[in-house]
Computed example of a mutant assay.
Amino acid sequence: MHIILEQQVSLASALSALNKLKEAIQEITPARVLLLTDEELKACYFSRQKTAYVRYLAEAILNGQINLTAFENQPDDEIRTSLIKLKGIGNWTVDVYLMFVLHRTDIFPIGDLAAVQAMKKVKQLPAGVTRDEILMITEQWQPYRTVATMLLWHDYLSRRKG
């Protein structure tokens, strides 16, 4: 749910919504989230779209379509296939889930603008570099693409502060 909130917004904004949700329901569970009305979720800074996405996820967990515990022992591609079926969950969301929740060490989130921008800067890549060219560069970092991504994010954030 937190990762859905982070889609296309600042991390601070997503955290603010998550904290507001925690205030409203104490413990965040699929069942408790589904008890909230659209207005209550809006009061927790959820957009209409994110409200729908969070509801789809909560329902998929409760009806057994998604088993988060089983993901711990599944290969990345199987997890991706399961999650991508849910409305509101795309490759970036799956990548971040694999990295931060399942602690997978070989993920490069090609859809993450900060990681891609930092790579272009660090590697001094031309403006017209393609997605495929970026992915070819990241292949050299296997099996530690997640670690490389963390370093790129650090670089990106450091440049923004400076």
Rank of each mutant, 00 (worst) to 15 (best):
L151A: 03
P109V: 03
L36G: 04
W141E: 10
I79F: 00
N73F: 09
I28F: 08
L152S: 06
M136C: 11
A52G: 05
V129R: 01
D132R: 08
E72K: 05
A58V: 04
P109N: 05
E23G: 09
L83D: 02
E39C: 07
Q7C: 06
N91L: 11
A24K: 14
Q74A: 02
P30A: 11
R32F: 04
L125N: 00
V101Y: 08
E59Y: 06
F108V: 09
I79K: 03
T81Y: 14
H103R: 13
S13E: 09
L41N: 01
C44R: 06
L11G: 14
L157D: 13
A17M: 09
R160M: 02
Y56T: 10
K120W: 06
T146F: 07
H2L: 07
A31I: 07
E59S: 10
M99K: 03
T29P: 01
G64E: 05
N91Q: 11
V54N: 03
W92N: 08
L98Q: 09
D95V: 05
V101Q: 09
D95I: 02
R104W: 12
G128K: 13
K42C: 01
K50M: 04
Y97M: 07
L18D: 03
R55M: 02
S158D: 14
K20E: 05
L21H: 11
A43I: 00
Q26D: 15
E27K: 14
L21F: 14
K87I: 11
Q140T: 15
N19D: 13
T51E: 06
R48G: 05
N19L: 10
H2P: 02
I137H: 08
L98H: 03
L15K: 15
M119G: 00
A60F: 02
L41K: 14
E139V: 14
N63V: 07
I107G: 01
A52Q: 12
T138N: 06
M1Y: 13
A24T: 15
K121T: 07
Y97S: 02
E133A: 13
H2W: 08
N67L: 09
R159L: 13
V116Y: 00
R131V: 15
D38S: 13
E40T: 01
Y97C: 04
A60Y: 05
L83A: 03
V94T: 03
F71S: 01
T93G: 00
Q49E: 15
K85I: 11
I25Y: 03
Q8T: 05
A43F: 10
V129Y: 07
G90F: 04
P109I: 00
I134C: 07
L113E: 01
I134Y: 01
Y45E: 02
R159T: 14
L98M: 12
E23V: 01
S13F: 11
W153P: 05
S82M: 06
